[in-house]
Structure formats: C-alpha cells, structure tokens
Design a protein around this nucleic acid. Sequence first.
DNA 1: GTCTATAAATAGATAGAC
DNA 2: GTCTATCTATTTATAGAC
Lengths: 180, 180
Amino acid sequence: MAWNKEHKQQTKEKILVSAAKLFAHNGFEKISIDQVMQEAKLTRGAFYAHFKSKSDLYSQAIIKGAQAAQTRKPKNSNASLANIAQYYLSQTHRDEYDEPPCPLAFLVSDISQQNEDIKNTYTQIFKGFVNQANEHTEDQQKALQSAVLMIGGLAISRALSDEDLSNDLLTACQKAINEF
Amino acid sequence: MAWNKEHKQQTKEKILVSAAKLFAHNGFEKISIDQVMQEAKLTRGAFYAHFKSKSDLYSQAIIKGAQAAQTRKPKNSNASLANIAQYYLSQTHRDEYDEPPCPLAFLVSDISQQNEDIKNTYTQIFKGFVNQANEHTEDQQKALQSAVLMIGGLAISRALSDEDLSNDLLTACQKAINEF
DNA sequence: GTCTATAAATAGATAGAC
DNA sequence: GTCTATCTATTTATAGAC
C-alpha cells in the first residue's frame, strides 16, 4: 500500500514535470493531454487517475514550474537583487529549452485568458516573487517595479524576432534594477 | 469595379476589427475563424477570399489592433511620457472590454509561441512604441525601460486575481516612469 | 465574393478490460 | 492505475452552387 502510494506520487510527479515544460514553452491551448502523457511515457487514459481536468493539470504544473525555476536562482543567502536580476534577465533564461523557465514571464498573457483558479495560482506565485524582492529592497513599490522589469522584460524579450533588440532590452532592465 | 473593390476592402476591414478584438482578449488558439466571421456577420466560407490562413489573419489583426489602440492615446503634441503612462497603465485599459487594447501587452506571451512572421509583426509594432517613448526621453535605454514598465506592467496586472495588488502594480509602474 | 456542405484531423473526456 | 477503444465536439481548410 505504501509502495503503491509512493509509486502513484512518482507518476504524478513525472506528469507534472512534463506538463510544466511543455506548457511553459507553448501555452495552455497548444499542448494536448496526449502530448503531456507521451512526454511522461504514459497513455491518455491514465491521465484522469491523477487530475480532474486539463485546467487542473495546468494549475498544478505552474506551481511545479515555479518551484523548478527557483532552483536556478543564485543560492547564496546574501545575493543582491542585482544578482537575481542578472540570472533572471539572461539570454540563457530566455533561450535555453532544457532549463526550467519562470512561468510568471513565459505564461503571463496566457494566464489572463484562463479561469479564476488559475489566476489565483499565478497570483500566489507572483506574491512570493515580490516578497523575495522585498527582502532586498525593504520597499514594496521598488519590489513591484523590479518584478515588472524582470518578468515583463523577459516576457517581451521572448516575443521579439530582432535578437539585438531583445538583448538590449534585457540589459536595459538589468540596469534599471541596478540603479534602484 | 471600383465599387466592388471598395466593398471588399470594407468587408476585410470588418473582419480585421472583429479579429483584433477577439484575439486581444482571448489569444490566438482560443478564437476560431468561425467566431471571427460570426462577429463580422459573415460565414466561414467567405474567410479565405480575404486571408490565406488563420496565422495570416492574426498578423494583420495585430497591426489593426495596434492602430486602434493608438487612437486612445492623449492627442496633444506636447503630451509627456507621464501622460502616456497614465492612460496606458489605467484600470480602464486593463478592464474595459469595448475599448481597443494594446496587443503588445495583451498578447505578449501569446506571440512568443507563434511563427516568425508574427514575431516580426510584433517586433515592428514594439519598435514604433519605443520610438514614441524615445521622443520624450531622448535616451534609448530609458525608452526601453519605460516600454517594459508599461507593457509588462499592464500584462502582469491582467493576470492577477487580487484587484488591490493589480491596482498597486499599475500605480507603481506609473511612479517609476514619472521618476525618470 | 459569399454561401452551404463536407473533408480530414484532432481535441477533451469516458468506459471497460486487465 | 494503466491500458485500448470510443464518444462527441470542434477545428482548419476546401469544393462547388449561386
């Protein structure tokens, strides 16, 4: 029984990791349940033993993706806001497919098209993000501005086909945060 | 002949206006060609006399939407960047369904999931946006930062289910631009 | 150029065997 | 819990009448 429970947990984990990756790069609508299950090396039918709907999966996958993205942050406890911005607003974060990206930036306009449950999930993650920035600035308004420069800067940089402009944008956002 | 040509132009215009509105609020995947044509009071079959594909429509609808959003800007020639930010980062721009919204913010992460043609279109519109900011600041880097605070701020504010936080975010972005 | 009808593919979700 | 099979609905795109 304990073994079964743990096994189920691992299976669910595998589905969530697959979903987090596929959703982050393609959004909710472009990814099918079938694609997620294939990535997790399972079949469609097994899906509903773990999630009650595609929206349910999306919500949980965003949380999983945010946790995974956290592991990429600079780990020293005295890392400055500038340190965090440097990693967050990097070309690697923008381009590297195999590293878990931050769903706050990769899915921002996708979220505003989803139901209230999903917006609640996004909002909670965003609050955590701002709180982390707040530890460095001790100023709620600056924390919000930094969050927008990071999340918004990365999101826009991903939509631009002009790579020079995209790089300039990342740099400009870093500098704005450094000047805080 | 001239009459027919003009009539076709008007029909296409109606399709584009319908598409711009529906796409801006729901993204590319959630809107079907059928929905766009119904909004324009036409049927599916007529669509392909005007556009070669759904992607083609999307690209042209983004341009149309950006032009429509322009008409909402403060019109005085000596409007400051703060004036523009005040309208752009307003609750009305965020919430009002019947006013044409800026696709740069409403579709930012939707665009990064689309093909190169669409990214090119988005990039051109973004460059125009930054150039307008540049007229006020005379500083390319500040223009980029202002653009991120406006577009990113509005985009994130739309994804938040906590209205107080969403409003605070808009205000914080306005203040950051005012301090430039 | 616009219509109706339809082709062809794919989606989310469920049923039942093991 | 996972599988195969299937239901039902929806999608983009095309064909042909008017």
